[in-house]
C-alpha cells in the first residue's frame, strides 16, 4: 500500500484534489444534460407515466411556427446583442481618463449591470408605455405618432434587445476598463513617437492589447444572448401572440409555465438550444486549448 502510494502519488494526488469538483460537475452539469436529452424522447407531463415517442418531439418542433419564431428571434438577439461590445469599448475609452470624480462616473455607468434584469425590464416597459412612456412623450414632442413597441410584432424583439443592451454594455465596459489598465504605456509612447494617433492608435496599438478582454466580452455576450429569458418574460411574456419568444423562453413556457408541463417537448427545445450553444462553447474550448498549448 505504502509502496503503491509512494510510486503513484504524483499521478493520483491531482485526481484526489479534483474529485469534489468532478463529482459536483457530474451531478449538477453532466447528468442533467443527459437527463434532458433522455426526457426529450418522451411525452411526459411531469406527473404521470412517461410515454416513449422517439423523435416525435423533434418532428413536432420542426412543424411548429413558434419554434421558428423563437429561432429567428434568437438569431436577432445573437447579432444585435454583439453591439454591446463596441458600445462598451467606446464608453470604456471615454471613461479611461483621470478627471476629478471619474470613479463616480465609472460606477454610474456600471450601475445598469448591477441592478436586476427584472428591474431593467420594468423600467423599459414603462419607457415604452404607449400612453405615458418617455419614448412616446419624446416622439409626441417632435410630432410623431406614438409607437406601442411592446405590443407590435414588428418592433417588440428589437425593443427588448435594446433593453438588454443597456446592462450588457455596462458589462463590456467594465471588462474593457480593466483591460485598459493593463495596456502597456511604453508601447503607447513608442507609437506616439512614430506619430500614431486617433483611429490608428486605437486599431494598431490599443485593440491588439485588449484582445483578451474582447474575447471574454464576446463569450459572455453570446452566451447572454442565447440565454435571454428574464427580459422577455418580464416585458412581454413572449407576446404579442408569441412573437417575442426566444428558445429559452419557449422552453420554459412549454415545460414549466401555467399552461405548459410538456416536459418532453420542453426538453427537446432545450436540447436544440444546447446544440446551438455547443457551437460557441466548442469554439471557445478549442481556442483555450490552443492557447494553453501555445505556451
Amino acid at each position: 500500500m505504502q509502496a503503491f502510494w509512494k510510486k503513484n502519488q504524483q499521478s493520483i494526488a491531482p485526481w484526489l484534489f479534483l474529485l469534489p469538483g468532478i463529482a459536483m460537475f457530474l451531478l449538477y452539469v453532466v447528468y442533467p444534460i443527459f437527463g434532458s436529452i433522455q426526457i426529450s424522447f418522451f411525452d411526459w407531463d411531469g406527473l404521470g407515466e412517461k410515454t416513449w415517442v422517439g423523435m416525435g418531439n423533434y418532428v413536432e418542433l420542426l412543424d411548429d411556427e413558434a419554434f421558428y419564431t423563437s429561432l429567428k428571434n434568437n438569431i436577432l438577439w445573437l447579432v444585435l446583442y454583439l453591439l454591446a461590445i463596441p458600445a462598451g469599448l467606446f464608453v470604456a475609452l471615454f471613461l479611461n481618463q483621470t478627471v476629478r470624480g471619474i470613479r463616480i462616473y465609472k460606477s454610474l455607468f456600471f450601475f445598469p449591470f448591477v441592478i436586476s434584469q427584472v428591474v431593467v425590464g420594468l423600467v423599459f416597459s414603462w419607457f415604452y408605455d404607449p400612453n405615458f412612456g418617455l419614448l412616446n412623450v419624446a416622439l409626441g414632442a417632435i410630432g410623431l405618432e406614438p409607437i406601442a413597441v411592446l405590443a407590435d410584432e414588428r418592433f417588440v424583439t428589437y425593443g427588448i434587445i435594446v433593453a438588454g443592451l443597456w446592462p450588457q454594455t455596462a458589462y463590456c465596459m467594465i471588462l474593457y476598463l480593466t483591460g485598459l489598465n493593463a495596456v502597456d504605456p511604453e508601447q503607447i509612447e513608442a507609437a506616439r513617437l512614430d506619430n500614431a494617433k486617433g483611429w490608428k492608435m486605437l486599431w494598431y496599438i490599443i485593440l491588439p492589447q485588449l484582445r483578451p478582454a474582447t474575447f471574454i466580452a464576446m463569450v459572455v455576450t453570446i452566451i447572454g444572448a442565447l440565454r435571454s429569458f428574464d427580459l422577455v418574460s418580464i416585458m412581454t411574456d413572449g407576446g404579442p401572440w408569441g412573437s417575442s419568444r426566444v428558445l429559452a423562453f419557449f422552453m420554459y413556457e412549454q415545460a414549466f409555465s401555467e399552461y405548459g408541463f410538456r416536459m418532453g417537448y420542453g426538453a427537446a427545445i432545450a436540447v436544440v438550444l444546447f446544440m446551438i450553444m455547443m457551437v460557441y462553447i466548442s469554439g471557445f474550448l478549442y481556442k483555450m486549448y490552443r492557447d494553453e498549448r501555445g505556451h
Binding site: A148, L150, A151, W241
Partner: peptide, 10 residues
C-alpha cells in the same frame, strides 16, 4: 367598430 382599447397587448 373600434370597440377595444388600443395597444391592449401591452
Amino acid at each position: 367598430a373600434n370597440f377595444f382599447l388600443e395597444n391592449h397587448a401591452a
